[in-house]
């Protein structure tokens, strides 16, 4: 019923991508990844702690047989920093995949559209498989695809806000604009499972989230709920929802009711 989920020609079992940040422990993170059935997780590139205080590596808690790693450029505010960080991530993990973030502002963490486009062009030219975090602008999405990104990842709402999909129309327009060229993955803003289902029902190819699972009271249950919502939303999209109507339409026969009946006149 469902076509396989592919990015840059590589097939992934799950349409839910998770982060690895903000978890209370590495063990809890691993349990969440398992419960969600995710097949790709993001990691951040950061300076090694030279005071010797760093604990075990997060990579020891990721089952790389089942889960692909996607290094990000989180925290970068310039094209140069994002490109340098992408190069470092590629070297550290021997992977050409990168989640590109070029942020515009530390308060909203919204992407810098111009910087994102420039960095996408540079990295795509250098052979990276660029998954670009972007705003929900369909025209920018098209420009990103034109410069060679492998996936467009519009924010549903600001990173970590839990506000869900604030502009479903734009997400839909992004999807329609680049459909058939690259997958669209809603990245950022998810608060709970229904947000994932709504995104998937809009027809996007996947959802990437972190905080909504990592900081949920019962993170493992939330991770499972997110995985189920992702599947449910995808299935509902493919199944084709009914048209919205302002008029009611009874589900039970209007004839054969026990008499005598008297209907109020409209």
């Amino acid at each position: 019923m469902s076509l396989p989920f592919k990015i840059a020609g590589v097939e992934f079992q799950s349409r839910l991508l998770l982060g690895t940040g903000k978890y209370r422990s590495h063990e809890e993170m691993r349990a969440c990844h398992e419960a969600s059935k995710t097949s790709m997780v993001t990691v951040a590139v950061r300076r090694v702690d030279l005071t010797g205080k760093s604990g075990p590596s997060i990579l020891d808690y990721i089952d790389r047989a089942k889960i692909s790693l996607l290094p990000n450029t989180a925290g970068c505010y310039t094209v140069e920093d994002a490109v340098r960080t992408a190069h470092l991530g590629r070297e550290a993990l021997s992977t050409p995949w990168v989640k590109l973030e070029v942020l515009g502002d530390p308060v909203t963490l919204l992407p810098d559209p111009i910087g994102t486009l420039e960095a996408s062009a540079i990295l795509a030219r250098e052979g990276f498989i660029v998954m670009a975090y972007t705003s929900d602008d369909p025209i920018l999405a098209r420009r990103l695809v034109d410069v060679g990104v492998a996936a467009v990842m519009p924010a549903g709402s600001p990173i970590g806000s839990g506000l869900g999909i604030l502009n479903p129309l734009n997400i839909r327009l992004v999807r329609d604009t680049v459909a058939g060229r690259v997958p669209v993955i809603v990245d950022a803003g998810v608060g709970t499972a229904s947000d994932v289902a709504i995104a998937m029902e809009l027809g996007v190819d996947g959802v990437l989230l972190n905080t909504a699972v990592a900081l949920a009271s019962d993170s493992v249950s939330m991770a499972r709920a997110m995985g189920l919502a992702c599947e449910a939303g995808r299935m509902a999209f493919l199944a084709g929802r009914i048209a919205r109507s302002t008029a009611a339409s009874p589900s039970s026969p209007t004839t054969g009711t026990i008499g005598p009946t008297s209907k109020p006149s409209p």
Binding site: K22, Y23, V43, I58, N210
Partner: peptide, 10 residues
């Protein structure tokens, strides 16, 4: 020099 590794992130 910048010496980097991977940490948790979204």
């Amino acid at each position: 020099f910048e010496v980097v590794s991977l940490v948790g992130g979204g």
